[in-house]
Amino acid sequence: MRCPYCGSLETQVKDSRPTEDASSIRRRRVCPDCGGRFTTFERVQLRELTVVKKSGRRVPFDRDKLMRSVEVAMRKRPVEGERVERMINGVVRQLESQGESDIQSDKIGELVMEGLRSLDSVAYVRFASVYRNFREARDFNTLIDELAGSDPAVEPEPEERTAKGRSPSRA
């Protein structure tokens, strides 16, 4: 493994252990040349996946890109990182077990939305607003109404609520 600090190819594994959900192996490494320490993860990969974009362009599936997009949606939300990691692992397992190496980008988006919906409703709405390319506040209202209609834990805001005694404004 190449050292991310100095580029040396002679790094040493100092510690290996399975992650909490046993889906990967966490390795602590050290570079004897510069003394830099870093962590790597080893995961099972059933097949090489290719993402087929809406434009028809094909790119290799990148788990880290998926994780970054979910982390943006989860920013400042009270959800444990371990639960997010399990959700990402579940999405990747579903994609790999489909038997197809070409995956439509919208299939990935739908699986992520399904996972986020069960983790955190705010993160779900954030992700959906980008994934579905919301253009107006009405798009948010429609999604929140869908979410509230299917999840008894989410209560829609009362329409007659006012701010400082003023009549409610419509978006």
Rank of each mutant, 00 (worst) to 15 (best):
E96I: 13
Q98W: 05
Q98L: 10
Q98P: 04
G99Y: 04
G99I: 04
E100K: 00
E100A: 08
E100Q: 01
S101G: 11
D102K: 14
Q104S: 07
Q104W: 03
Q104Y: 05
Q104K: 10
S105N: 03
D106A: 02
D106Q: 11
D106K: 03
K107A: 09
K107H: 05
K107L: 11
I108K: 03
I108D: 08
G109F: 06
E110P: 00
E110N: 02
L111R: 10
V112H: 04
V112E: 03
V112I: 10
M113K: 14
M113V: 10
M113A: 09
M113D: 01
M113R: 13
E114C: 06
G115V: 06
G115L: 12
L116I: 15
L116C: 13
L116S: 09
L116M: 14
R117D: 08
R117K: 13
R117Y: 05
S118M: 00
S118C: 00
L119Q: 12
L119E: 15
D120V: 14
D120N: 09
V122Y: 13
V122M: 11
A123N: 03
A123I: 07
A123Q: 00
Y124T: 04
Y124E: 00
Y124D: 00
Y124W: 14
V125S: 13
V125N: 13
V125D: 14
V125F: 12
R126A: 06
R126D: 07
R126Y: 07
F127Q: 05
A128F: 11
S129F: 08
V130R: 12
V130G: 11
R132H: 07
N133F: 05
F134H: 07
R135A: 05
E136G: 06
E136C: 09
A137Q: 05
A137Y: 06
A137G: 08
A137C: 07
R138I: 08
R138A: 11
D139C: 07
D139Y: 11
D139A: 05
D139H: 12
F140T: 11
F140W: 10
F140M: 14
T142V: 13
T142M: 05
T142H: 08
T142A: 15
